[in-house]
Write a protein that binds this DNA or RNA. Sequence first.
DNA 1: TTGATTGCAAAGCGTTTGCAATGAG
DNA 2: CTCATTGCAAACGCTTTGCAATCAA
Lengths: 151, 151
Amino acid sequence: MPHAPITSGDTLRRRGLRLTPQRQMVLSIIENSGEHLSAEAICQRVQASYPFVSLSTVYRTVERLKAVGLVREVHLLGDQRFYESAGAGDHYHLLCRGCGAVLHVDAALLAGLREQLEHCYHFTPLSLDLLPPATVSSAARVLRRANKTQK
Amino acid sequence: MPHAPITSGDTLRRRGLRLTPQRQMVLSIIENSGEHLSAEAICQRVQASYPFVSLSTVYRTVERLKAVGLVREVHLLGDQRFYESAGAGDHYHLLCRGCGAVLHVDAALLAGLREQLEHCYHFTPLSLDLLPPATVSSAARVLRRANKTQK
DNA sequence: TTGATTGCAAAGCGTTTGCAATGAG
DNA sequence: CTCATTGCAAACGCTTTGCAATCAA
């Protein structure tokens, strides 16, 4: 057990999850990365200090962490899923489809819109598509390949 | 050539695309369905009146139709891609993650938000994530299975 | 001890692609 | 005739799953 995970064991145990090193490491990586990580990325980062993790475990783990509210799943560009700490506070993602950059916007800015939607449509938005997605999937493919080759 | 496609051949020819029955049918199906269709769904509907279409042709065709601006790709629930006519006018999608229902909202309602984002962040939004996606992927899986079994 | 968790390898799903055959121009 | 387009089957990338081994409690 090389690095001691930063997240306290209680955080996991308190939510009814057994305390395995894999779980602690996965959670720790997600919580200490300010960014959005793919399952692959999580797996690699965990393995860097604790090699005994498989990709399937990462998938199963993020699923459980999502279920207990410690982690959020984010759909950014394309079909791949990304994960971030649920403790990061309410914010929205501004994603540049050209270069893949992600900005965070405070929730306050969109409070007005939420009210309008709720008022006019009785609808509480979770996610909404704001314009014709032009070349999303091709951009995503380009990005994916770029990520592949650069490592 | 069973059913005459509603879309005029010129629409395609004018954009530099060869006029094949497959293409006409795919476009016709998309334009005459008010809803969002998956590649699978498009393929099935086309085959209902014109059996000589393969799924790969549907994928290649929607890609081209997107490229020439006749069709939009929409990311709704989960990882599957859906397609709608680009002639449907500017609108946004309100998606119920519980039941999969989709509402259309006129673009005007969100004009203010776009201005704000552009002003505060120099950002022109195409798509944005409005809240922790809770159980998106599991809901998507449920829906996908429901679609499978119902046919 | 016992059931939750893991790793592996295989399967699954939607999408893409190589290639030879077809058909629009 | 010529090159775009097609169908098929295989490949792909990400995610899920079955199963036996392991390990937290």
